[in-house]
């Protein structure tokens, strides 16, 4: 990984301070993850009585039990499907819209943009009844598409907002030279703006993957078929109204967290490789 250095800390004290901060915060961030993983290796009776981070007797079988008991195979497939489609659709629709709001001129542009911004503000509780009535009218209840479209809507306002901020930063002269080269609007969008906005797109992907991956309220509302539901439905088996199976739940949560961290690992490269790499190819 190549990072161009802007600020160089030369003296030792500065380096010491910098690393102290980094390591301290890093420990605070990583500890819960270890705890979660350690708890996944304990049993229901030792989760809250055994305080060692990793127990003497590791119950690795918790992971397989959690996997089968929660029918993770089916739910994993569903969740991957929903996440890829929702986030994929979201990225394309919102980059296009953000590009238009940032780079093109047309009547009602500002009013429309304002409308999207308004959408971010009204909190969700209260909308579910109207949404359900709508989905019923459209015959989208208990269908995959009926789950995906509202989620694209839920994510796109913020995505457009983030992307517009970054599109606004693209220098005009790059756009002009592309236009001289004979690019039309679609060309500028696809060959110039899209590659240049990769860090921002990566951010949008990271945020929305997490949101879609963990979503369950909408899933419970839209689906009645178990076979269509996403991963959090599987985890519900371990959390009763009164009874929670902590060790298995932690094993399940540990499993579900891995794909999200992987997505982040892949995407953060785009954040870092940043504008220079994109500009060369554009």
């Amino acid at each position: 990984m190549r990072i161009s250095s802007i600020y160089k800390i030369k003296n030792g004290l500065g380096k010491f301070v910098a690393y102290t901060i980094l390591i301290f915060v890093a420990l605070a961030c990583i500890f819960p993850l270890f705890w979660m993983f350690g708890s996944a290796l304990k049993t229901q009776s030792t989760v809250f009585s055994d305080f060692s981070l990793f127990p003497k007797h590791m119950h690795w079988e918790n992971f397989t039990i959690a996997w089968t008991k929660a029918h993770f195979g089916m739910y994993f497939f569903n969740s991957v499907l929903y996440t890829v489609i929702t986030v994929g659709g979201l990225v394309f629709f919102s980059t296009m819209a953000a590009f238009a709001f940032s780079r093109l001129d047309f009547p009602f542009k500002n009013a429309l943009f304002l409308m999207f911004v308004c959408m971010m503000m009204i909190p969700l509780p209260g909308q579910f009844v109207a949404l359900y009535v709508l989905l019923t009218k459209l015959h989208l209840v208990n269908t995959r598409i009926g789950y995906i479209l509202p989620q694209i809507d839920a994510g796109q306002a913020l995505a457009i907002f983030i992307l517009k901020t970054f599109f606004d930063n693209i220098p005009r002269d790059l756009e002009d030279s592309a236009r001289i080269d004979g690019c039309n609007k679609w060309g500028i969008y696809w060959h110039l703006a899209f590659p240049l906005a990769k860090p921002a797109i990566a951010v949008v992907i990271i945020f929305n993957c997490l949101a879609v991956w963990n979503e369950y309220l909408l899933a419970m509302l839209v689906f009645s078929d178990k076979s269509l539901m996403p991963l959090p439905r599987g985890l519900m088996v371990f959390q009763g109204t009164h009874m929670t199976e902590y060790a298995l739940l932690m094993a399940g949560v540990s499993i579900t967290v891995i794909p999200i961290i992987l997505v982040y690992l892949v995407m953060q490269k785009y954040i870092i490789s940043g504008i220079t790499a994109g500009a060369l190819k554009g």
């Binding site: 819209a97 009204i122 109207a130 709508l134 796109q156 969008y189």
Partner: peptide
């Protein structure tokens, strides 16, 4: 028209799944 095409997909989804519940609220 091309300009509007850029915002069309986002707008359609928004009008349907965003604005309608919003007005209901």
């Amino acid at each position: 028209t091309t300009s509007y095409l850029f915002i069309l997909p986002a707008l359609v989804i928004f009008l349907l799944f965003g604005l309608y519940p919003f007005t209901q609220v």
